[in-house]
Measured scan of single mutants.
Amino acid sequence: GTEIELESKNGQREHYTATSEDEARKIIEKAVRRGIKRIELRGASEQLIRDMQEIAKQIGLQYRTDGSL
């Protein structure tokens, strides 16, 4: 699965493990709508990382991946 670590603007951290790319995408989209400061992805697919970079650029988000592409 993909591990997703979120940090909201007030510094609250949340951790999710998505079993599918679809689920990961839903978690990320929800977080973005809620207003999130930072997202870290571990074990994400190349496609998901590309999507994440696109989203991050659009809304000026900090993100990090573990680089295991």
Rank of each mutant, 00 (worst) to 15 (best):
A31H: 06
R34T: 12
S45T: 06
Y16F: 11
R50C: 09
R13S: 08
E46S: 11
A56S: 04
L41C: 04
A56H: 03
E46N: 07
Q47A: 12
I28R: 00
A24G: 02
R38M: 12
E23I: 05
K9L: 14
G60T: 02
D22F: 07
Q62T: 05
L69M: 10
R25W: 08
I28E: 00
K37N: 10
E21H: 06
Q53F: 12
T19F: 12
R13D: 04
D66M: 02
E7N: 03
I4Y: 01
K9T: 13
R25H: 05
E54C: 10
D22C: 11
E5D: 13
R25Q: 03
G11M: 02
S68W: 12
K57G: 05
K26P: 00
T2S: 04
E3A: 07
K26M: 09
R42I: 08
K37P: 04
V32N: 01
T2E: 02
E5K: 12
Q62H: 15
R64N: 15
S45K: 01
D22Y: 07
Q12T: 12
G67K: 03
V32I: 14
T17R: 09
Q58H: 08
V32C: 10
T19C: 14
E7V: 10
A18N: 13
S20T: 12
Y63N: 15
D66T: 04
I4N: 01
D51Q: 09
Q62Y: 08
I49K: 08
T19Y: 13
I36D: 05
Q47F: 04
D66F: 00
K37H: 12
I59P: 03
I36N: 01
S68K: 07
S20R: 03
S45P: 06
A24C: 06
K30C: 12
S20N: 10
S8A: 12
G35P: 03
I28K: 00
I4W: 01
Q47V: 07
S8L: 15
D66Y: 01
R50N: 08
R33G: 12
T19G: 10
A44T: 02
Q53E: 13
R64F: 15
K37C: 14
I28D: 00
E5F: 14
Q53Y: 08
L41E: 00
M52H: 00
N10P: 03
K9Y: 11
K30D: 13
T65L: 04
Q62C: 15
T65H: 07
K57A: 12
R25F: 10
Y16Q: 03
Y63R: 14
T17E: 09
R50K: 09
A24Q: 01
L69T: 05
I49C: 11
E54G: 05
Q58R: 12
D66N: 05
R13W: 12
S20V: 03
K37M: 10
L61F: 06
E3G: 06
K30N: 12
E54T: 12
R34I: 13
G1D: 10
D66I: 04
R42S: 10
R13H: 13
G11N: 04
G60Y: 06
Q58M: 07
A31F: 05
E40I: 13
Q53V: 13
I39W: 01
M52V: 15
I39P: 00
E5G: 08
L69H: 05
G60S: 04
I27F: 08
K9Q: 13
L6G: 02
L48F: 06
R38L: 06
G67L: 05
E5H: 13
R34L: 14
R38H: 07
N10H: 08
Q58F: 04
A31Q: 04
E46V: 09
E46D: 10
T17C: 14
S45I: 04
A24M: 06
Q58V: 07
T65N: 08
E3T: 08
L41Q: 01
Q47W: 02
A18W: 05
N10A: 10
A18I: 10
Q58T: 12
D66W: 00
L41K: 00
A56E: 03
Q58E: 14
M52Q: 00
R50P: 00
N10R: 06
S20D: 09
A18E: 05
Q62P: 03
N10F: 08
Q47P: 04
K9V: 11
E29N: 07
S45W: 03
I55Y: 11
M52F: 05
G43K: 05
R34A: 14
L61Y: 05
L69V: 12
R42H: 09
T17V: 14
K9M: 13
S68Y: 11
L61I: 14
R42C: 09
Q47M: 07
R33W: 03
I28Y: 01
I27M: 04
A31D: 00
K30Y: 07
R42A: 07
E40D: 09
E23C: 09
I39C: 03
G35V: 01
K37S: 11
H15L: 15
A44I: 03
G35F: 04
E21A: 08
K9A: 13
E3N: 09
E29A: 14
I55A: 02
Q12V: 10
E5T: 14
T17M: 08
I28Q: 10
K57C: 11
E5S: 13
R13G: 02
E14W: 06
A24I: 08
D22L: 07
E23N: 05
L41P: 00
I49M: 11
S8Q: 10
S8V: 10
Q62D: 15
Q62L: 10
E21M: 08
I27W: 07
I39V: 07
E46I: 08
S68F: 06
R33L: 12
R34S: 09
E40K: 10
E21W: 05
G1C: 14
M52A: 05
R25S: 02
E54V: 10
D51E: 08
E5I: 13
A18L: 06
R50W: 07
R38I: 06
L48Q: 02
Q12S: 10
D66L: 02
T17S: 11
G67E: 11
L6I: 15
I49E: 07
H15W: 13
E21I: 10
L6K: 01
S20E: 05
K57E: 09
E7C: 11
S45H: 02
R64Q: 15
G60K: 06
E46W: 03
E29I: 08
I59G: 14
T17K: 10
E14Y: 07
V32F: 14
I39A: 02
E54L: 08
Q12M: 12
G35N: 10
Q47R: 09
A56K: 02
G35A: 04
S45A: 02
L48W: 02
D22N: 06
G11Y: 00
I28W: 02
G60I: 05
G1I: 13
R33C: 14
R50T: 09
E46K: 08
Q47N: 09
D51K: 08
R33H: 13
S8W: 15
G35E: 05
L41M: 09
Q47E: 10
L6N: 01
I27Q: 01
G1P: 13
G43N: 11
G43S: 05
E29V: 08
Y63S: 15
R42L: 08
Y63T: 15
A31K: 03
L48G: 00
K57I: 07
I36S: 03
G1L: 13
I59C: 15
A18P: 11
E40C: 15
A24Y: 02
S8C: 14
K26S: 13
E21P: 07
A44S: 03
A31W: 04
R64P: 15
I59A: 15
I28A: 01
E40W: 12
A44Y: 03
K30T: 12
E14I: 09
Q12A: 09
